[in-house]
Nucleic acid binder design. Structure first.
Lengths: 318, 318
DNA sequence: ATCATGTGATTGATAAAATCGATTGTTCGG
DNA sequence: CCGAACAATCGATTTTATCAATCACATGAT
């Protein structure tokens, strides 16, 4: 049987790696310097290797092996902490802080409904909300700075568990006076007749609307480059109102009143699938996986009835 | 600061999960039953949850949370053990058992040279060799039943670190009396003139030789189905000798004398790349990564001089 | 019904360890 | 050469892990 390093010793080692100073590392661990020193020594003695270079002066310099052990100690302690956390989450499900990330094309339109819903169903949950674009949300999620994110699916990111919540249909936004406004609905093919206003690069909604347009007709790079770009959906609507072009809007945004007082109206688009799927995602093997599954189940209540029904009938995601 | 479960307690839990019996689990851990019982109780008390269902009789039944904690305990203990192992590997590099897997189209031809080489360079290493096909080697590697494998690259398997060692050229094997035997070398295009003898499904060499043949000409499924199949390279050579068809052989096999006394001769193939790259692979983040890198460096000495040179000049792998 | 048996939990004693406060021995910078 | 800063060491104390023995409670055989 192998002698395992004690978690305490590993904590001391990580603190030392962080502070590079025995005294400060010790007070960070709430122990005396002698305790931490003894702990590091004991770890080195048990492993029968030296983790610190003690040659040069009194500075804290780790050996190559020391650095490697530090990396692995982080992993091991995280795994141990996860056991505590999963126990805590099971003891008191749906309590405590929950750091939720949300993309800018969902956040402003869903949060006014989402926050009261969570307060009602899970009053013990303290939501901490971050709004950012998909890529950076994923980075924050995988590095543990977020617990759970609300985004447009599909999301290709390994180690991520996602649940589709509902479909959000795209509708065409045109100025009241536009020719297309006279039609009851607009076929996909006609979307390229007029210039398009798109979101800035980085918004996944930009790529999704472009993909919808490309369904209708070959719509090359040149038109895309000449399109106007907006930094938010609110700006995009204003620009459509100013006659700079037409735009595709998520139904979610329209439902929450983004068009009010803008002179922009919407028409449904026909001739092909035109929606995005909104889903909830979290780190696979997160200690609070069960919490997040329950949250997803509750969040489905926020779907417009017909969107949820559509997803139920055809759960295969695009 | 969260209270972490002690590794010892987790070991008790895992033993209990394995034996489902306090007494037997205790002796497996070399402690008394009371110690193990107290350990489990202490773990439950510290986590403030119940891991065992103690309602029904005296049988050992885990709660759902218990099962989850057991899974995570396995991960955490592995991470802790990895720290011990990396320390041990650094303390005594290149010692102890090393479980090497090798595919059947490499093993018989390289092991007679590889084993003495390792005995000479790393006499402390105790090789334990397993021969199997790529897929099952990878499965054994990822589940920890092998430490390192020798295979044909590229190998698409995440979590695997691989190093290319040398190129092994394919040569054409034909009966001495065959028409192609009269040529000094054979262009790829002519490989499909005669029936081909291939290895059985599952050998990666089969797919590689088919890929080489396909370079020369469109060579569809029907010819493949009608090809003869051999269960080993030795059989394949015999079948070529019997006139059942021609075959592609790794130079490695030819160099080690597979053709002796068979009436089969070889010709180089021209008109396109015709080789496989042999590499060494191991679990990324294996505690003995440094050992394996050193091993790979040494194994390169087994390459025919020209093959290693080719790889040095053009290390980009196909 | 009764008792033997197998099981996990409990108890009290003992050995091992973690930790603390105080001290020692180095290494720099002035 | 001295003093400040720092890590290592020492001795005392508390805490923890472990053991052997025992208890409490099922189950099954008679």
């Amino acid at each position: 049987m192998v002698i395992l390093p004690s978690p305490q010793q590993l904590r001391y080692l990580l603190a030392l790696a962080e502070w590079r100073h025995f005294g400060r590392a010790a007070s960070a661990c709430a122990v005396t310097q002698s305790t931490l020193s003894a702990g590091i020594l004991a770890l080195e003695r048990q492993l029968d290797v030296s983790l610190l270079d003690r040659e040069v002066g009194k500075r804290v310099v780790f050996t190559l092996l020391g650095e490697e052990v530090i990396r692995r100690a982080r992993v091991a302690l995280e795994a141990l902490e996860a056991i505590s956390h999963v126990a805590q989450a099971s003891r008191e499900p749906m309590t405590g802080p929950m750091r939720l990330g949300v993309i800018p094309t969902i956040g402003p339109f869903i949060l006014p409904r989402l926050i009261p819903l969570i307060r009602e169903w899970f009053p013990q949950i303290r939501l901490i909300i971050t709004e950012d674009m998909t890529e950076r949300l994923l980075e924050k999620l995988t590095t543990g700075r977020l617990d759970v994110i609300l985004l447009a699916m599909p999301c290709i990111c390994e180690g991520l568990e996602t649940v589709p919540l509902w479909r959000d249909p795209f509708v065409l936004a045109v100025p009241k006076s536009d020719a297309l406004a006279k039609l009851p609905s607009v076929p996909l093919e006609r979307l390229t007749e007029e210039p398009m206003v798109l979101l800035e690069d980085g918004h996944c909604l930009r790529e999704q609307t472009v993909a919808v347009c490309r369904q209708g007709r070959d719509w090359g790079g040149s038109e895309l480059e000449s399109a106007h770009t907006a930094s938010s959906l609110h700006t995009l609507v204003r620009m459509v109102g100013e006659g700079l072009g037409i735009g595709l809007l998520p139904g979610l945004a329209v439902d929450s009143g983004i068009l009010e007082g803008t002179g922009v109206i919407t028409r449904p688009v026909t001739g092909g699938p035109a929606w995005r799927t909104i889903g909830l995602g979290w780190r696979m093997r997160s200690p609070r996986t069960e919490d997040f599954r329950a949250l997803a189940h509750t969040l489905k209540k926020l779907a417009p009835a017909e969107a949820e029904a559509a997803l139920r009938e055809d759960p295969v995601e695009v």
